[in-house]
Design a protein around this nucleic acid. Structure first.
Lengths: 213, 213
DNA sequence: AGTGTTATGGTTCGATCGCACCATAAACTG
DNA sequence: CAGTTTATGGTGCGATCGAACCATAACACT
């Protein structure tokens, strides 16, 4: 059904307008009129595709989440055919940093929604699971590193994984606030990884043959 | 001047209403009418004490900041007469965690303001310096610990301090979102401190004689 | 050809927004 | 005591809010 494509594209176009406005002035700038103007559609269309404003905010967040997961998978797949455990952990943590405009905008939108996550049950369910999943993913990778001798056996994989994720989230805030450069954040992550991994060094994930488009 | 007291008390009363509303529904719920109702004063009074809404948001944030610093000093002073370096670092990091309703509310208000910090220059200046100051404070304490043999010499004090602060901030988010309990966050901080400090253990900061009121 | 469905624009309504304006009682100043 | 300043309440105005409502092209199916 080719209409479905148009339908989703329209929703995406509107959702992107929501993101842009939210990153600029927070959710209070996300009014139906402003979104309509930003997306260059009529206000009526917002009602048509999302209904009420509440559903618009919810829908825009769901699309953002889908994007985040898809792009993360793409970037991780881009690490090469057989990336080392450390490179994967590094890539996962980097998804939490605003290293490009896409991720910067995304994390900014999340913070704009943050307070709502606590009160609005519909929004809460959407964004509740992601961080825990990341911790478990990293913890699993560290255990895998322990089995292959890249990570010391006496290291508490779960605790270190959780703190690495927490640290990356904290770095996210400081980079967003421009209290620290993205390069500094990267260096700090690598500094911690150098502590957790005993492998002397890891080649940077540059794949010369199949480079990024 | 005894009027000054009344004046500041009125401003505080209004600011607290701003905080409560911001923690519930974000800044978009902080309307002049709602604040007036929450503070149980007339809307006219908000104009009188703060002027425009912009100044109200700014003023409420400044009062919050003053509170945060004062309470932090109080809690640190409560550690006892000669607290160990590790206990001080622990106390500083705990200021970043929502360990009680006061800190929980405060950090929630900060996240409600977050996006504004990036665009509003007046707000930016207010909240820009605090995190850097914390990092430097912790870094200085770690160096002090190195000099007294409590912290290994080969440890990068600045890098570890920054990552400890970042980790605490990340834990803050997860505790606010109830993805983790405050006790777990405390345990994770202590786990990291056990790594940074070589001192075998630290007595808990309970002062039996001069206990808290 | 007719008839529903989809996708769009425009308009309007009641509520609420921030804020300017007016009034006034109490307190301080001379 | 007269006058200014401080501290408060009330009210109204223009703008904007979210959302309901009405119209109608374009296409699908029969």
């Amino acid at each position: 059904m080719p209409r479905q494509v148009d339908h989703d594209q329209r929703r995406r176009q509107i959702a992107e307008a929501v993101w842009r406005l939210a990153t600029r002035g927070g959710l209070e700038d996300v009014t139906l009129r402003q979104v309509a103007a930003e997306a260059e559609v009529s206000a009526r269309l917002l009602q048509y595709y999302f209904g009420t404003r509440e559903h618009l905010l919810l829908g825009a967040l769901e699309i953002l989440n889908d994007d985040a997961e898809r792009r993360a998978r793409e970037r991780l797949a881009q690490l090469g055919e057989a990336p080392g455990t450390r490179a994967i952990v590094r890539g996962v943590l980097f998804e939490l940093l605003p290293l490009d405009e896409e991720r910067r905008s995304r994390h900014l939108v999340y913070t704009a929604y943050f307070v709502r996550f606590l009160t609005d049950p519909a929004l809460a369910t959407v964004a509740r699971d992601a961080p825990r999943a990341l911790e478990n993913l990293v913890a699993g990778l560290l255990v895998q590193g322990q089995e292959s001798g890249q990570v010391p056996q006496n290291l508490d994989a779960a605790a270190e994984a959780a703190f690495l994720v927490a640290g990356a989230e904290g770095l996210q805030s400081s980079v967003l606030l421009q209290q620290r450069s993205a390069e500094d954040a990267i260096a700090m992550i690598d500094h911690q990884l150098a502590r957790v991994f005993t492998t002397p060094f890891e080649p940077p994930p540059a794949s010369p043959a199949a480079g990024p488009a």
